[in-house]
Amino acid sequence: MIGVLRRYGTIVGFVGIVLFFWISLPETFMTGRNWLNISQQVSMLTVTAAAMTIVMVMGDFDLSVGTMASLAGVVAAVLFKLGFGVPLAVSAALATGLVGGALNGILVSYIGILPFIATLATLTVFSGFAFLISDGRTIFGRDIPEAFSGFARSGVPLGDLVSIPALTIAALAFVLIVWIVLEQTVFGRRLYAIGGNSRAALLAGVYVRRLRLAAFVLTGVGAAIAGLLYASRVASANPTQGDGLMLDAIAAVFLGMTMSEEWEPRVHATLIGVFILGVLDNGLTQMSVDSYIRDILVGAIILAAVASSSLWRRDTG
């Protein structure tokens, strides 16, 4: 019994949180509409956390995802302001993610700087660029084309009243792609091998450096996508708006990792981690709980999940 609780502690906790809100908010919480809302609210975090999962599979970190999201949004907005169209602005933002991710990858795998340090440095660099090209201002209003900001407000109709938000669909599509890449491809298998033992992986014929670089590139592009979704949702871009995504993304991946016996990051588990955070935000707001209490609870839940899973590992390992 104890073992079950430890093994599935995080899932049990998630179900417990959902039940709690269901009981506390009987009319408004467990509705399709509210869950669609939650899915839309966490869409940027979902993409960021899924992207973060890619590098964490290798046992690495990318602390720069948040500022990369900010930078990508600002890049797109500045191009809008200069009169360029949506395809070009979006492509440029994605290219920014690619270049930034490649920079992280080169620093980590070819130059050999610890990911924590390398991406802490690029975190600052990306943020600096975001401030530089935006002049530190929020770009909004008429500068942002309707075609771009309209995306976040659009959706696929489901019956007469409800529609599945475009942001939800985009986030789930991204998770699906990451899931396929990590779980179904040779590339993903090799990333997990690097995470398992990078020395052994190299000796067993894995191009460790090359793959690490590729993984960081994917994470950078993911962060840029998250930044674009964010900019579309707020129909504006300022140089700090995505910064907060990073810590929540790491928290979500950690929560997901506690669900695996070997502490492996799995993107579907990350998604549950994201929803734990999103449901807490949604439910606690609806219950009029002080938003600062939410922070305390999130921290406590992460500690509880990690502690129970560590205890379980100690007993079995």
Binding site: V186, R190, Y192, G196, A204, W263
Partner: peptide
């Protein structure tokens, strides 16, 4: 330290150099 990915499955360990075959 140089051979196995201890936390991975036997299959993942065995096929690592040969993944292109599968």
């Amino acid at each position: 330290s140089e051979g196995l990915m201890l936390t991975r499955s036997i299959a993942a360990n065995v096929t690592l150099p040969h993944l292109r075959l599968f």
